[in-house]
Design a protein around this nucleic acid. Structure first.
Lengths: 130, 130
DNA sequence: TAACACTGTGTAATAATATAACATTAATAT
DNA sequence: ATATTAATGTTATATTATTACACAGTGTTA
């Protein structure tokens, strides 16, 4: 469950845009879309994105340099994320699997190290594209 | 096991550099380092990197925009990768765990979809930095 | 051998992604 | 109220990656 954060004006504008979107949005596409609301510079966008990622409202899809709203209400740790990505239509879906997150959170490497933060991106073809 | 590929001159120069490195290398750092060998332009580097990734000789660390040689000789699928990344010293280690790769290769999402390609990046502190 | 496809190269220009530096303002805490 | 922290606005710049075009090598095949 997300801790409640009161978003600032810029954060809210940018979160709303990402949240409404059916696909991950890139920073400069966001910038273009919010210029009419007074957000003029890349840095304003990146600062809001950084904060939104930090508080777990959005996630960055690293392989795509794009941002998606978190729709995983059972997400305990904002930084333990898993996605599936369609290599044709680029549809991205956040995976919420208790089994998967449990497995990864408990995974130990050769040195016995555990990691509470991770990012997993699966690639394949979605239903429609198969 | 990697299929054998005869690397071209540029690919070999760039692979050697990455392979010798103890840390992931960024494209423009590679460019700087191979300029004395006649590779002058970013595109020459990116083309070699693309090919090396494609044939599984190197992997891209997506969260860092950096490239590391594959040291996972049991790697069946070049595109099923897992790494641990130290958030302090930025040390990156490729994880070779039969259990993990089996678990992920067999993972099914809600729609019953399986994914043979994935990229997993774990974040935490390495032994030295704890 | 010529025609073709395929892969790689070289070069210049530019696009796309992200941060540094600095001045200012708003919000929060004691 | 004032010190502190977080957010903003703005300009400039750094970093990462691709487009476009000309050409060279290799192998196939017709």
């Amino acid at each position: 469950m997300h801790k409640e954060h009161t978003l600032t004006k810029n954060q809210q504008i940018i979160f709303d845009l990402i949240d409404k979107s059916s696909e991950p949005l890139k920073a400069y596409s966001i910038l273009f879309n919010v210029q009419k609301k007074g957000i003029k510079a890349p840095l304003q966008v990146y600062r809001a994105l950084d904060k939104l990622v930090e508080i777990g409202k959005i996630h960055k899809i690293e392989s795509r340099n794009a941002f998606i709203a978190c729709h995983n209400s059972s997400c305990q740790v904002a930084k333990a994320t898993a996605f599936s990505i369609c290599e044709i239509c680029e549809k991205v879906t956040e995976i919420s699997s208790a089994g998967l997150s449990k497995y990864l959170a408990n995974f130990k490497d050769k040195d016995g190290m555990k990691y509470s933060k991770y990012n997993l991106e699966f690639f394949g073809l979605c239903k429609k594209c198969r």
